[in-house]
Design a protein around this nucleic acid. Sequence first.
DNA 1: CTTGCGGTTTAGATTCATTCTAACTCATTA
DNA 2: TAATGAGTTAGAATGAATCTAAACCGCAAG
Lengths: 149, 149
Amino acid sequence: MIQSLNEHNREDLQEALGKGGQKLTPQREVVFAVLLAQRDHPTVDEVFNRARESMPGLSLATVYNCLETFVGCGLVRQVNHERESTRYCPNLAPHAHFRDKETGQVHDIELPPEVMKSLRSILPPGFDSEVIEISFLGRTKAYDPLHSN
Amino acid sequence: MIQSLNEHNREDLQEALGKGGQKLTPQREVVFAVLLAQRDHPTVDEVFNRARESMPGLSLATVYNCLETFVGCGLVRQVNHERESTRYCPNLAPHAHFRDKETGQVHDIELPPEVMKSLRSILPPGFDSEVIEISFLGRTKAYDPLHSN
DNA sequence: CTTGCGGTTTAGATTCATTCTAACTCATTA
DNA sequence: TAATGAGTTAGAATGAATCTAAACCGCAAG
Ligand SMILES: [Mn+2]
Ligand SMILES: [Mn+2]
Ligand SMILES: [Zn+2]
Ligand SMILES: [Zn+2]
């Protein structure tokens, strides 16, 4: 359960924070390590509870602060599904999110460049988009290759 | 400013409510009329304030109730952008939403069937999606056909 | 060293959209 | 006329997120 970053990830974190004019702190390290350790799109409370295991004095406010800082530095994305608590995702590749209606689990769905292009192409002239968010809601069944056609 | 439904829309509303086991009420008529009159994706408070002009005794709780009922009957979609207040949209055609970062305005973006298909195609086997939400965030410039190439 | 500074962290208060509760209204039916 | 039950209402409660002000801490100047 001990959350710590390897050298490589710590350097990445430090560099990204530096570019955003922010410092590396023990709290930020722990919170970032939590995000990397289990990529299940945790809520703030989930991050808080996991991070407290390695840093018991950590406060909820600091988790909010750290995550906001990471988003500002482009290290992490916020994931919103309807009115639920915000979730956090350290996957920087272009991807959509799929939420399983039954389990509540959130899965990353890779977004091929050609799909991105077709999406951008639906914008009328004069519409200039920086961010596209795509979220699916549905169910996941275990995939059985033997019984798929 | 008086909000009332024409015969055609009232019938549509009554039919859709009926299918969902719900009744047509004066409050529901006014709230639905507000949504049809100005398709700017109003928040609950905006709907409330507009609807009160034709029905002063209307309560905020009822606006929440009516909108929830409409969503349940498939008459209206909820539109979420990040953590902002939920907005409501009576456009039942498949479409995405574009939010202007500067004005806050939300625009409908038509979703051609082939884009829907390409989107569905990115789901891995076993992922079955009922709802796809697509939202753009960006800026809109007035489009000048003379100076576009 | 010692002090001051500024960014960070912290606990707790506050905000505010949304949901909940319980009383009331009112049309329909027994 | 009375009972029923869906719908409406005002206000209370909820809870994620934000705000506030004090404490903390690394660092640099004196
Ligand atoms: Mn790297
Ligand atoms: Mn019609
Ligand atoms: Zn993700
Ligand atoms: Zn819309």
